[in-house]
């Protein structure tokens, strides 16, 4: 096999991609370190422990205070505390839960899949709805469809997601009794057939996924609209029209491709919001995910779990952003040379 122009092109393309990848990976280090420093600072928000903790919450026993002191070496100098803590965090050792004594990382790991599942489904729903809505509004800015969606976007930005959850619960769950309003399984789950069980799970997921998706819907459809309007004004689109290329082809083939690129980054940026929102919908719908675990841990002041969740949540976001940036760089070679 010869080493033609095409192969040479691929080698260069792959090597700049690899270079970009390592550059981004290297940049990750200070960010990860920063995440641990800020998380560590949160532990020190409580002034004058441990007497303060006792005063704040009388339920905290003397024994729990001692465990807290020991876990975070609170009697040692600040730098030593941080380094000791960091050493354990690097090995993903966040200590044991105060509530049930199990390892924090194990508790978080078993809760993670359901939270990821709901968030991924929600993201799919956001894209599935916001994409066509944004495109149609962009085709006729100021038209009837655009005016109505603008109105709904405004409403969407102002509506508290947890209130929407309550209204849906009230209407679809309680008044009409169409959908289950809590948990992931019905009482008779184990008696159902394979398909019955999946259908049951699906029914339980409809409300949480809708509420999780709701938060991103308004913003994402605005971005699609904005990008699309911007791209449709570009010279190469006008040139395509001038050449007499079919209008649909211009919009969906040439314009859409370029309007979608920046959205990869937006999706990446929306990850912390989605993960953060899981606390709200998981506690409303009693979904046994990471958000609910963190909520329960906060209520019980289970500090090891809270700190573990905080660090893991931030690291997941960081990795999500990295993934989005890599996808973008892969799709748009201009990025890699900057």
């Amino acid at each position: 096999m010869g080493f033609g122009h095409w192969d040479l092109f691929r080698v260069i393309r792959n090597s700049t991609m690899l270079l970009y990848f390592f550059k981004r990976l290297f940049n990750l280090v200070p960010l990860l370190l920063g995440i641990t420093i800020i998380s560590f600072a949160v532990i020190h928000l409580a002034p004058g422990r441990p007497a303060y903790l006792k005063e704040m919450d009388p339920r905290i026993s003397l024994e729990a205070q001692e465990r807290l002191m020991k876990l975070y070496d609170l009697d040692k100098p600040l730098l030593k505390q941080y380094l000791n803590w960091l050493k354990r965090v690097v090995r993903l050792d966040f200590g044991n839960s105060f509530v049930d004594g199990r390892k924090v990382i194990v508790r978080l790991r078993e809760r993670l899949p359901i939270t990821l599942l709901i968030n991924i489904l929600a993201m799919g729903l956001i894209i599935g709805i916001a994409l066509p809505v944004g495109i149609i509004s962009a085709l006729k800015p100021g038209g009837l469809f655009d005016k109505w969606t603008t109105f709904f976007v405004f409403l969407g930005f102002s509506l508290p997601a947890f209130w929407l959850a309550l209204l849906l619960m009230l209407l679809l769950g309680i008044k009409l009794n169409w959908l289950p309003i809590s948990g992931l399984r019905s009482f008779d789950h184990h008696q159902l057939s394979f398909w019955g069980r999946n259908l049951d799970l699906l029914k339980h997921l409809i409300l949480p996924v809708s509420v999780a998706a709701f938060g991103g819907l308004a913003g994402f459809s605005r971005y699609v609209r904005g990008n699309m309007i911007g791209v449709l004004k570009q010279d190469y689109i006008r040139a395509a029209y001038a050449q007499g290329i079919d209008k649909k082809r211009v919009v969906y083939k040439y314009a859409l491709k370029n309007a979608l690129l920046p959205l990869i980054t937006i999706l990446g940026l929306s990850i912390p919001g989605l993960i953060g929102g899981s606390i709200i919908f998981e506690s409303i719908f009693a979904i046994p995910g990471m958000g609910r675990l963190l909520y329960n841990s906060t209520m019980a002041r289970d500090y090891p779990v809270i700190m573990g969740g905080l660090v893991i949540g931030a690291v997941l976001t960081l990795l999500g952003n990295l993934l989005a940036d890599l996808c973008y760089a892969w799709a748009d070679p201009r990025i890699r040379y900057e």
Binding site: L31, I35, V42, I43, P272, G273, L294, T298, Y303, G309
Partner: peptide, 15 residues
């Protein structure tokens, strides 16, 4: 990087 609500919750837990 911090999911805002996680950070809020963690801070509330210590304050």
């Amino acid at each position: 990087c911090f999911p805002t609500f996680f950070l809020l919750l963690a801070m509330v837990a210590f304050l």
